[in-house]
Design a protein around this nucleic acid. Structure first.
Lengths: 337, 337
DNA sequence: AACTTCAACGAAAGCGCTTTCGATCCAGAG
DNA sequence: CTCTGGATCGAAAGCGCTTTCGTTGAAGTT
């Protein structure tokens, strides 16, 4: 490894001047600056990030944490979509992402501690559980942070407009003539799940549609199996719905599976609308009509929010709500009386 | 931030002893060791990773790079599956992953340079293009590295058994009575694509099945659209196949779409088998029969291989071939004459 | 000629930690 | 009572870089 001292020796300047030249300080002449840069290139010099960070207290890294409540981790399309978008944009600003582990050598450290240990400049969290103590700890610390997919009054958050998502869905279904509309909900410990329930309830009330007994069924942790199970309950009802708004695409797909298995035709006998617009939604049969979350935009806004805090060196608390859109496909149709 | 000097002051020992106590050196008594650890906990001491790395030349980080030939990046289920598995296992060994960017502040640095700059202990690469110059550069360097999804004679690689994958597929189709079997291939600049072609050709030859004109069609970069296009070509043939082995699930799904659009029933009129076993495969209609790549196992083996090199401090060149399995679902059926 | 100004450079301390190499002290050996 | 060896501890250098502050010399002022 070649250091600034090597460059100093070679060029005849001091290490101070070398450092300044490399960092484009004003108090070094054009000529020596060029000379130093040239020999740096020639000798294949690379700065040492650790030394730099130690000295400047800035690491140009961002810690990324996602809670894996249901064990899917990065494999969930929503997560990987957001992370990828975030990565791309953070990269443009010069930051690397570090995917942190918790159970590092020094046992029993929290994520916050771990990020502190790593000296990250900021933290990006994707978490759906507002009560997660690990996330709380990070939010309460003074480090710049942006959290995605939940709401919080004490930090920067960005999440989809889950409320109007429900409105959109119900409105659409209603416009197709449906009135017996059920909701397969995400667990209410999960922020998005809770709000989507509210969206559903509000929209139903607004149109004076009754939420019949059993029409609000908990679909658990958003998995395909959960959705399948929930649909069973719905179809077991004495007076089953003609349309169902499902809080997640995976669940919706599971729901379609059981409906089909039970002989229902979709959408003729039962309209289904999902939430997320994962890639799969476009390729199941029938193609799933759904509420699209804009993972790209979420990543973009999250980056901006975090950068702002890092630069200003102060936390800013704000809510960034990303609009959702209705993706009209094939799983819903006009109610035939 | 509180340092070992603060601990030294508080406990009355030297910083040397504090450091030794924290690192469990043998030449510090049980009693003082405990005292130091206690006050460290009490004062909320956290080591500084940058200082540590600077001093020890070990960063406990692994650089991760994936080539985004087709722009999907981490969003592709295979990538995110492997990365997630790798992360989990590297974490157990005490390593954090750093997702690197190339165009950092210092413009025009390569990935290798960037990883060197970051001082990673090793590199994990997911790349399908054996010719990628960036990857070559890394392989040729002396840093521990493991590359996934391609073959190479000069480093540790782990990839699926693409050859027997083809064999498996053709064998299965053949056992169902098919002889007119086509192949929608991945571009041959992509390692997996190339080998799967070979697997197809070998298996066909082995059974003395003719590869008719136009039966080997290039599906490009593994996208759904690519697959759809390729299937058009196949169905335009004067003597179209009765079964097709597709080099990737996305392509297979695209292929199914056009086949269905053209009025073919699957599997009655046309059997289709894919490659990957992405989640979606189980939920399209009909459920896609496919060759499953074991992303978990790939991640596990990659971690092990990399750890080994890091510990032994020397590159080891070896090939780890992960078995694939046939996932029999609904998109293939016995040929009805 | 004496003085101010400014551009260009360098000495040195500091960032927080590790590690080598002594130094010290005391128990037990001779 | 002296010597040896082992157990504990610390001084100091070093990792590679940044940054403050001072120094130098030449150009410009009066």
């Amino acid at each position: 490894m070649i250091t600034i001292y090597d460059l100093a020796k070679k060029t005849g300047f001091s290490s101070t001047t070398v450092s300044k030249a490399l960092n484009n300080y004003p108090d070094v002449s054009k000529k020596t600056k060029q000379a130093i840069i040239d020999t740096a290139a020639e000798m294949g010099y690379l700065p040492n990030a650790h030394a730099q960070s130690l000295s400047t207290k800035k690491s140009w890294t961002i810690g990324v944490m996602f809670s894996e409540s249901n064990g899917v981790g990065m494999k969930h399309p929503f997560f990987s979509g957001v992370i990828e978008s975030f990565r791309k944009h953070a990269e443009k600003e010069g930051y690397d992402l570090i995917l942190a582990s918790r159970n590092l050598r020094n046992r029993g450290t929290s994520y916050l501690e771990h990020f502190l240990y790593r000296g990250v400049d900021g933290i990006m969290v994707i978490c759906s559980d507002p009560k997660d103590p690990q996330v709380q700890e990070m939010i309460n610390s003074s480090i710049p942070i942006v959290v995605i997919d939940m709401s919080n009054q004490e930090c920067s958050v960005v999440f989809s407009d889950n409320l109007s998502g429900g409105e959109l869905a119900i409105n659409y279904l209603y416009s197709l003539g449906h009135t017996k509309i059920a909701h397969i909900a995400g667990d209410h410990t999960i922020y998005a799940g809770k709000i989507r329930i509210k969206g559903y309830m509000d929209a139903m009330k607004k149109r004076e549609l009754p939420v019949r007994d059993g029409y609000l069924v908990n679909g658990g942790l958003f998995s395909i199996q959960d959705g399948a199970l929930a649909m069973e309950k719905l179809l077991d009802l004495a007076d089953p719905p003609t349309a169902v708004f499902v809080a997640g695409d995976h669940m919706a797909i599971g729901a379609m599976e059981t409906a089909k298995a039970r002989g229902y035709r979709i959408p003729e006998d039962l309209s289904i609308i999902g939430y997320d617009d994962i890639e799969m939604a476009s390729y199941v049969t029938p193609k799933l009509t759904t509420i699209k979350q804009d993972t790209d935009q979420i990543g973009v806004r999250a980056t901006q929010l975090l950068m702002k805090q890092i630069i200003q060196k102060k936390k800013i608390v704000t809510e960034e709500i990303i609009p959702v859109t209705l993706m009209e496909r094939e799983s819903c149709t006009r109610l035939i009386k």
